[in-house]
Design a protein around this nucleic acid. Sequence first.
DNA 1: GTTAATGCAAATCCTTTGCAGTAAT
DNA 2: ATTACTGCAAAGGATTTGCATTAAC
Lengths: 163, 163
Amino acid sequence: MSAKVETEAERARRLFAEYLRGKGHHVTKKRLFMAEEIFRLKPRHFDAEAILELLRREGRWREEFDRFPLSRATVYRTLDLMVRAGLLSKSTMDEGPARYEVKLGRQHHHHMICEGCGEIVEFVDWGHEHLVRQAAACRGWQFVDSELIIHGLCPRCKGQRRG
Amino acid sequence: MSAKVETEAERARRLFAEYLRGKGHHVTKKRLFMAEEIFRLKPRHFDAEAILELLRREGRWREEFDRFPLSRATVYRTLDLMVRAGLLSKSTMDEGPARYEVKLGRQHHHHMICEGCGEIVEFVDWGHEHLVRQAAACRGWQFVDSELIIHGLCPRCKGQRRG
DNA sequence: GTTAATGCAAATCCTTTGCAGTAAT
DNA sequence: ATTACTGCAAAGGATTTGCATTAAC
């Protein structure tokens, strides 16, 4: 008997189901489908519209999808639930639509955004993490989460602006 | 002859006028009025709507204002110019309308937001500032700006959630 | 059977834009 | 005189919502 190892997508699906049950919500096919497929495809920094398109294009369960398409409203509602379940994180970097990203199983990281080309780079910085927790604690706050965004010029754009 | 010291509001007005001239923009009464009044009243974390209301209620130059009211469109356009001039900073913390705050003459600071009551607290942390610059530099980026948001529970809400 | 989720389209919120009129250069 | 700003109302993008239908409990 080979004990099959749970894939990340399966884990996301399972945890989401547990979350939903725990909250007294219905565990529907479309919700599980979204959790599983997002964690299988693992897109980075996507908005609601992009997810909808991605699932339409690359999602399994295609035939049934054609007959019972996901509506925009359900995508928004389910993304919101996944954020509350801790599977995704949501942020409104600047303008434009809200961005989501896979959170479960990833270490906490931050973002650098290039003012020139808009490129987004992720980075991990534990020294920073420590400082932030300290900053909250010494002011009597309970730390929950932090987001750091560095605006700058990426190596390429840095060169161009000088030349 | 007493050399009168320039107030902050006057300075903001002057710098804005210089910025506008430098860019070949018109130096209009309404633009100068906005810069001067915002820096006189110094509200914290305001959105476009709030500024409009504040200027209507507390702004000097009231009578003329009644005859030539500021339009929403002009408020948006002028706030944008003030950001580019470096007088204000703009951020889209989470949901809702974009928030502005007075930047000129204030040291760079960050924000803690309470998940419980929504309170926003500002704090300065130079250690953090240094780390951030380093993080950008050692990846080949040119640092421009950074924003840090800590989500947490303020002392009051921290107590309530336990009790 | 009861309760909640879904799709649709309409509504909402915040912001930008086209254009005719007005003010700054 | 020329150019740019302003107000208005309409358009725009992103998200939410009311309600009838359908699925989960």
